[in-house]
Amino acid sequence: MQDSFSPTFFRQLQQLKIRTRRAFLGSRQGMHRSARKGHGLEFADYRQYTPGDDFRYIDFGVYARTDRLYVREFREEQDLNVMVLLDASTSMGYPEGSNKFELARALALALGYVALTDGDTVTFCLLGQRTTPRYTGPQSLSKAMKELHGARPEGVFALLSEVRAAMASQRIPGKCFFVSDFLYPLPEQFDALDYLRSRNFEICVLRVLAPQELQLDAGLADVVVDAETGQEVELALDRSSREQYALALAEHIEGLEHYCRRAEIEYLLVSSAEALNDIVLRKLPQIGVLR
């Protein structure tokens, strides 16, 4: 994981910013346009003067035209509350050797680092395991890396309840990156995403699948066991069954994609075989998550 984070990559990450489509209230001054009006550089609106307002914000040009006192309001720039939900369930550790969890973790850290360098507040949540404290400032990345480094994909949970638990401590809405393989039943995923939406978070779904999952491995054993549920499925693998798998997977992927489109959730499907910097530096800016 640490190999991916070379000094060059760090420098490239420092050039990026997390893009949000709407303004969020922050907890402190930052680099993101906030819903709160106040001191800032970006003009927001006029408001009738009321006693007590700072004279410096009275727009005398408007007063000359309208003979009324108006004060200029500015959009305040605040930090962004970034929540990174990293699926650490057992399924992320399979297929063996696929590095699915490793890529997901690296993605989470890279996004976290981008947010931290932008002065945002970042919280990492290892679904099913633990939630880190809120980190601020780029220097917090080492703490976050240390925290996530020891994580292993293990654990079984119900997605909605786990998301609920993770979001319980989040009072301020913001940006939520959800990194998972999303190999859950679609309704369960929708419920979890709906919950995030209800918490007024702008969601970005990053779906990480292994190449063996994207295209069924010909050498797959005759009995496959679900890593989480232990459910066994006897297979009769042939060309038609592989085609049926492709159709079923496409249907599942399309289901989530369709939901995300409809719910204005940013969505990116990546293979665990892909390079981290390609995803972060090229694909995420392409879909407008980073800029």
Binding site: S91, Y184, D226, Q231, V233
Partner: peptide
């Protein structure tokens, strides 16, 4: 036997 991440898709085969 082979353990896979999920049989969600495979069980439909």
């Amino acid at each position: 036997w082979q353990t896979v991440s999920s049989v969600l898709i495979l069980e439909r085969l």
